[in-house]
Simulated scan of single mutants.
Amino acid sequence: MSKLLIEIEGKMTKNAIELNNLTKKFGDFTAVDDLSLAVEEGEIFGFLGPNGAGKSTTIRMLCTLAQPTSGSARVAGFDLIKESDQVRQNIGLVAEKMIMYDRLTAAENLRFFGKLYSMPKQKLEERIDELLELVDMQEWKNTQISKFSTGMKQRINVIRALLPEPEILFMDEPTLGLDPQTTFSIRDITREINQSGMTIILTTHAMTEAEVLSDRVAIIDHGKIAALDTPQNLKNMISHGDITVFGIKIDNLTRELIEKIRSLEMVTAVAQQDDYNLKVSARGDDALNQIIDTIRGEGGDIASLTNSNESTLEDVFLAVTGKQMRDQATEKPVNTHHGHGPAPKARGR
């Protein structure tokens, strides 16, 4: 298997994925614009971006679900275009939409997909038992998927992608819509999978998830890499100035209250850590008082409050991509747009 070797701090390292000027156009619209990057073998690589930034299109190309307009890529050492069959044999995909059949049991679902990979019967049965143990679902092996909670279904969805023992696993929003307990479970499973040596590409809108899991993070915007580094280095690139980060625990935290805080003019970023805790970055000497007044004005019960000058990954994300809302539609809108240029972007490599 041909893989480009690179030397980092005296060690020879293999690239699991290499993109060279990868481009995807839909008519006159450029979704992915001359993208070049390398993912090291065995790392968890976080892929972030606003809606419509190009990350999903990039992942679709790397999984051979869409053809590039130009440029090239190698995945698991194979050419994305010329050796697409070999690429598919070496990757797994945990799609945002669960791919399972409700009338089949967990084991029957896994057997079905295992046979699509032409796995020998004995090997497949051993692999099913091994993976069910990994996600603590052995006792549900012969239960219909329709009786599972969303979190249980997602655990089966994850191990479905692991059946053929892929070299590279793509995880697209793996914790979207899950409760906190299941979210933490999926993150633990992701770490355990990675510790076996598997390369993981993680796309997520949860900044905390990208920060705690990823070895490196790429932020893509308008089809280009806007920033790429370790989570800590990305946070270090934000100049604090008069920005302070507040840790706030609110006993009756709601989505509406989070949006109310986020809408305050002095607030630069809000990151929800769990059901009760927020990290709020804000600018100005009177920021804390205004935030507290807003929370109390909305009926929020503040249990504790701390402050520091540590930036969050969400600070970086908003600095790079801007705070403007991004929406996607399957059809072009009626021509009523009067033009607002793209938000200014921070420098990134």
Rank of each mutant, 00 (worst) to 15 (best):
E314T: 13
A76S: 15
S263K: 09
N15Y: 13
I81P: 02
M207W: 01
D274K: 03
M1S: 13
T330C: 10
T182K: 13
E7L: 07
S304L: 13
L202F: 12
A271P: 06
T268H: 02
F246W: 05
E125P: 12
D327K: 03
A343W: 11
G77N: 07
E41T: 05
K55C: 09
D327N: 03
I201D: 02
W140P: 03
T182N: 14
R111W: 08
K121R: 05
V316R: 00
V158K: 09
R283Y: 14
I193F: 06
T64R: 02
V75S: 04
A271K: 02
D172A: 03
G322F: 03
G114M: 01
R191M: 07
I248A: 08
A16R: 03
G299S: 12
G348Q: 12
L169S: 08
I81N: 07
D102S: 11
G299W: 11
I59K: 05
I295N: 09
M171E: 07
S239T: 12
N289Y: 06
K121I: 00
T150H: 12
A161M: 00
E40K: 15
K235P: 04
G46W: 05
E96H: 05
N90L: 07
T199W: 00
H205A: 11
E126D: 11
M1D: 14
T57W: 15
Y117P: 01
T204W: 08
G297N: 08
F112E: 04
L178N: 11
M12D: 07
H340L: 04
L213W: 00
M119K: 03
N335G: 04
T190Q: 00
N233Y: 06
W140A: 08
D215T: 07
E209F: 05
H240R: 14
G341Y: 01
G54F: 05
R88W: 12
N277V: 05
F47T: 05
E96W: 02
T23K: 01
I248L: 11
Q181R: 15
N20K: 11
M152Y: 12
N233H: 10
E9H: 13
E192I: 09
V267M: 01
S263I: 08
L288D: 00
E256G: 04
E298A: 15
I302A: 06
T57F: 11
I159S: 05
M152L: 10
N309R: 15
P231C: 10
R155D: 06
M207T: 08
N109G: 11
D85A: 15
E108H: 14
G348C: 14
E192N: 14
N194Y: 01
I248N: 04
H205W: 13
